[in-house]
Design a protein around this nucleic acid. Structure first.
Length: 588
RNA sequence: GCGCCCGUAGCUCAACUGGAUAGAGCAACGGCCUUCUAAGCCGUAGGUUGUGAGUUCGAUUCUCGCCGGGCGCGCCA
């Protein structure tokens, strides 16, 4: 079995190491697959690593290691090369055996026990439910979903979680924006819609729903709504005073809304929240992104966890009061400055609820907690880790994966992504134009911490050039061959794989055997893009083989062997694409 | 100004955690369809890995200084 050939080789080298350098048996055995096929199937730099400790020429050490290597059917050649590499060429049979392994393990091929069944939580998207998801959220969604599948494949017990910011000022702004649109529709004039309110058409839609459901129940006079507000400064003014005044005006509108509507304010707020949340949820579902838990920020306050958290920090001496506000001494944990957890008006900051949220995560017993954040939040990491430490928890369990923004280009111009201005491209629009498969794949085709230029025009007009089709096409080709072969698939495991003997077939088989290693490496690095690149490689090897050799030949034995290899390719592509949330059509 | 991230072919990106001659896809050029899907294949061309030093058998990878870009530096979320 080719996957095991790596571990078997490792064991052989360990034995050789024990006799050559008994004092250095703890040297890690690194085996890599050389780029250059003339360097064999595996190579190790073990001799070079030992050179310093043994004070000997690496090539000489390599010679001795080769000489001490126990005999094995696996290895047909072991030679010293370059500065001291040992290159191994494996038995062809050992390489093609992987085909049978893939076919018998099926969907489970590539799964590993690396995670050991430990609990990991992946929190992602967590966008404020104040409007439609945009292309930036889409990237976080695609990355988080793929990463979660990847970790599950690698043996982790994964919980996918969305943190719902249902408690803050942003939700109040959405509620007041909806209310103001509702008032407009009910003929209340004389209230200018605030420029810092939510402008999108979806706000009008929600207002209409309110009107339909509740008629004029929420109507109040313009005078009452505007009472005590500072008014809006000239729209052209951009100075700090004007900005402050706009914010104060908005806050005054919110305060008036709460006062005038009383319990009904909650109804408006709740309507906006559930509406946006369900919209986002269905959007994500359609995108193939599912969550196990939708965690409410508000619940942290309702259960008193935020207060308990702050008390705990206070008793441990990590808080102090200054200018009427409570500060957390995050500088004691490496942060640039201390941070407020409770404002002078008694309201807790977002940071306070976030500390509580992380305490909650830890109390739920996760062995690892992964936060997927937009890269603009990187400055936030030290204070959160600091707070975790201050709570006497192991901050190492928290891993923050930063996702750079996806910048959308339309007509060669950067498209705005401000939710507030209403001029954004939604994830829904993107999916409709580019397609779910291409979206998911495109998003995950680069490292998460790398900037992503998403050229919409290119994606629309030249979808054929998207690499996702390259892989899907390989899959469709296999399906087509299988249909024409029309044999019993269960007989494939009986194929005489020794008939797979040309270099392309051996290379393809070797490529398939890498899959479990790719999964483990990608899971370790939190890097699903490695899976995407791997699948491109598999497809490339397959297409090359497909063009060079015919599968449905007259020689029955050879035909069966080749079809079984093709079926194994299909299986690996399916497993990988499934992990990335991309479909595999049987025909294209 | 301080902190974090990034800089690789004309463009978009990889590079198995320090390995051998830095690889793909687009774009360019030349070939391959009377045989399993040409959304494919084969070939050519394209590089001082931003730059200057350092660490060592060996650096795209690690350290430091510059240059260029992004983000952050609220009693916002």
């Amino acid at each position: 079995m080719a996957h095991d050939s790596k571990t078997e080789l490792t064991a052989l080298l360990q034995q050789a190491l024990a006799s050559v350098a008994p004092e250095a048996t703890d040297t890690p055995i690194q085996l890599e697959r050389p780029r250059d096929p003339t360097h064999g199937d595996f190579a190790t730099n073990l001799a070079m690593q030992l050179a310093r400790a043994l004070k000997k020429n690496p090539r000489e050490i390599a010679q001795r290691l080769v000489a001490e290597l126990p005999p094995s059917k696996l290895v047909t050649k072991a030679e010293v090369a370059g500065a001291g590499f040992i290159n191994f060429t494996l038995d062809a049979g050992a390489k093609t055996d992987i085909v049978k392994t893939v076919l018998t393990t099926g969907e489970a091929y590539g799964r590993s026990t690396l995670g050991g069944g430990k609990k990991v939580q992946v929190e992602f998207v967590s966008a404020n439910p104040t409007g439609p998801l945009h292309v930036g959220h889409g990237r976080g969604a695609a990355y988080g979903a793929s990463l979660s599948s990847l970790l599950a494949y690698a043996g982790w017990d994964v919980t996918r979680e969305y943190y719902v910011n249902d408690a803050g000022r942003q939700m109040d702004i959405l509620a007041v924006s909806t209310w103001l649109r509702y008032l407009e529709m009910n003929g209340v004039s004389g209230i200018a819609f605030p420029p810092n309110g939510y402008q999108g058409d979806y706000v009008r839609t929600m207002a209409e729903q309110l009107k339909t459901a509740r008629a004029d129940r929420y109507v109040r006079t313009a005078d009452a709504v505007l009472e005590g507000t500072p008014g809006l400064p000239d729209g052209l003014r951009d100075d700090p005073e004007a900005k402050t005044q706009r914010e104060q005006h908005l806050d005054a509108l919110i305060a008036n809304g709460k006062k005038l509507l009383g319990e009904d304010w909650h109804g408006v707020h709740q309507h906006a929240l559930t509406e946006q949340l369900s919209d986002g949820r269905s959007d994500l579902e359609e995108f193939g992104v599912h969550f196990d838990v939708w965690f409410s920020e508000k619940s942290l306050f309702d259960t008193g966890l935020v207060a308990r958290c702050v008390d705990k920090l206070e008793q441990a001496g990590h808080l102090y009061v200054q200018n009427g506000a409570k500060w957390f001494k995050s500088t004691a944990f490496g942060d640039e400055k201390d941070r407020v957890v409770q404002r002078d008006n008694g309201i807790y900051t977002y940071f306070a609820s976030d500390i509580a949220y992380h305490l909650n995560k830890f109390e739920r017993g996760f062995d690892k907690v992964i936060n997927i954040w937009g890269a603009d939040h990187h400055g936030y990491i030290p204070r959160v880790k600091g707070a975790i430490q201050a709570l006497d928890l192991d901050a190492e369990k928290l891993q923050v994966a930063l996702v750079q923004f996806a910048v959308l280009y339309r007509n060669g111009q950067k498209a705005s992504m401000s939710t507030r201005s209403g001029e954004f491209v939604t994830l829904r629009d993107l999916r409709a134009e580019v397609g779910n498969d291409a979206c998911r794949f495109f998003y995950v085709l680069r490292k998460a911490d790398q900037h992503l230029d998403f050229d919409l025009d290119l994606a629309k007009s030249q979808t054929n050039e998207n690499p996702v089709y390259y892989i899907q096409y390989a899959h469709a080709r296999v399906c087509s061959v299988m249909n024409q072969w029309a044999g019993d698939e269960s007989s494939l495991t009986e194929a005489n794989l020794a008939r797979l003997d040309n270099p392309r077939e051996l290379a393809l088989a070797a490529k398939l055997s890498e899959f479990p290693e790719v999964i483990e490496a990608a899971a370790r690095d939190l890097a699903p893009h490695q899976v995407a690149f791997y699948l491109k490689d598999v497809a490339a090897e397959f297409h090359a083989w497909y063009n060079a050799e015919r599968m449905l030949v007259d020689d029955e034995e050879l035909k069966l062997a080749r079809v079984s290899l093709a079926a194994a390719v299909r299986q690996v592509i399916r497993n990988g694409m499934n992990m990335l949330g991309v479909s595999c059509p049987a025909s294209m």
